[in-house]
Write a protein that binds this DNA or RNA. Structure first.
Lengths: 236, 236
DNA sequence: AAACTATGACTGACCAGTCAGTCATTGTCA
DNA sequence: TGACAATGACTGACTGGTCAGTCATAGTTT
């Protein structure tokens, strides 16, 4: 258990540098000279610290089991401060998830590297996904959505609209391109783009639950999967 | 927050009603002859009612947010009765999940209908799975494991040992049979049996989260997936 | 009557959210 | 520039409510 020493700021240094606040854990700061920054800036910093801490806690414990006292402690702020930035626990959670999804959404908007073959594009996309989602905290966010989605319809809706439907639409377009170019022979794949990404999602879940028991080489698995779709790759 | 009614569900036992329940319901007479059943039997009935109710609540709310008062109400017993059957909330949850998994485990043990082709076997298995898991409460249990697994390592372990590793081993055997028979051309598929079942898991998750937005024909999706693996099916 | 089972009021811990007070910072004036 | 005032970000003790788990009492069976 990461017990942050209560370090109640009573540093007996009435004059000393402005309170560094117990945040020691993740931020060696040293404030003072470097950048006291103006108020607005510091407020933004604090908000960021809260967001960071809250995500960690929500991922580790789920929505209900997360205590805002712990979030505050981890962020190095008082509990009351949280309420200067968020209305309540629930809207905080929703806002957090939304914010965390933005990078994924942006990635979907970015034009794919339309260079080589369709297979290369999909493979590049998958490698990206596995590197930046499956093996990072973003993967846990996906798991968090699966876990809490049914109790937060607003989040499930948002996720469907902004990530799932767009992602699948893009994938469908790619599949159709592959069919048109003759790279993909199974025309009906375009009806279920989910199949294309299924192993990626499996990898995310596997990492969270079973990585300890049996590591999974997600990249290699995806490659085999693509072999099924595009045919064995020539290894000239 | 949507409150699940939770009360309802006390529709008089199929057998004679005993239930003295609080205050009013003063009708402690009768019952006897018809179907009181002996003690052990009634205890088992009550236990079953508790298990049933608890599963519904856990699925709907997750572990932490589930209140044992609600479980008791839904099961038609007093809260104290729960503690006659289970040590505490946590071990109750673990036991519940374990119990709920038994049918799935048995299915994995059952010899597959080794009749026709490997494809037929896999397809039969998948149809079974989609009918009996993806579209029922069992699917929610899988989701529950994904959701709570990280906080209940014992459950994740159990699930891995009893379901995942066995299921994958069986699937791998089937794949190897398919390769030996020449039905499957991609030899490396045997290294990642996860690929074979990936769409089934996707279907489970989709049902819980997105069915409202866009229904998914899981059976048809799986068929397309099998086409990728076994080649287009002849529809002569 | 003795043994067993069920009940639900009760207890104590826990936690989301509040708010009166503190104090570093910023603004104003001489 | 230095002294003083105003601001509002921040704090954390506190409140009100919730809920897991207990146990004295009541009911049932043998």
């Amino acid at each position: 258990m990461s017990k942050i020493p209560s370090s109640t700021k009573i540093p007996a240094k009435p004059t000393g540098s402005r309170r560094v606040a117990g945040g020691a854990a993740a931020t060696p700061k040293t404030v003072a000279a470097t950048t006291p920054a103006n108020r607005a800036e510091r407020a933004a910093e604090r908000r960021a610290a809260i967001v960071e801490a809250a995500l960690d806690e929500f991922i580790a414990r789920g929505f209900t089991a997360t205590r805002l006292d712990d979030v505050a402690k981890r962020a190095g702020v008082a509990k009351g401060t949280i309420y200067l930035h968020f209305k309540d626990k629930e809207s905080m959670f929703e806002e957090l998830i939304r914010t965390a999804l933005v990078p994924m959404i942006n990635r979907l908007h970015a034009p794919p590297p339309s260079g080589g073959s369709v297979r290369d594009m999909v493979e590049g996309f998958a490698e990206n996904f596995i590197r930046e989602v499956a093996s990072t905290r973003r993967g846990d966010i996906v798991r968090l959505i699966v876990a809490e989605g049914p109790r937060f319809p607003a989040i499930a809706d948002f996720y469907y609209r902004e990530v799932v439907s767009r992602g699948l639409a893009g994938m469908r377009a790619l599949i159709e391109l592959g069919i048109a170019r003759g790279e993909i022979r199974h025309k009906s794949l375009a009806r279920f783009p989910q199949i294309m990404v299924a192993p990626a999602l499996i990898a995310v879940i596997w990492q969270s639950l079973f990585a300890r028991h049996a590591p999974l080489d997600a990249t290699e698995m995806f490659r085999v999967h693509l072999d099924l779709i595009f045919g064995e790759r020539r290894t000239t």
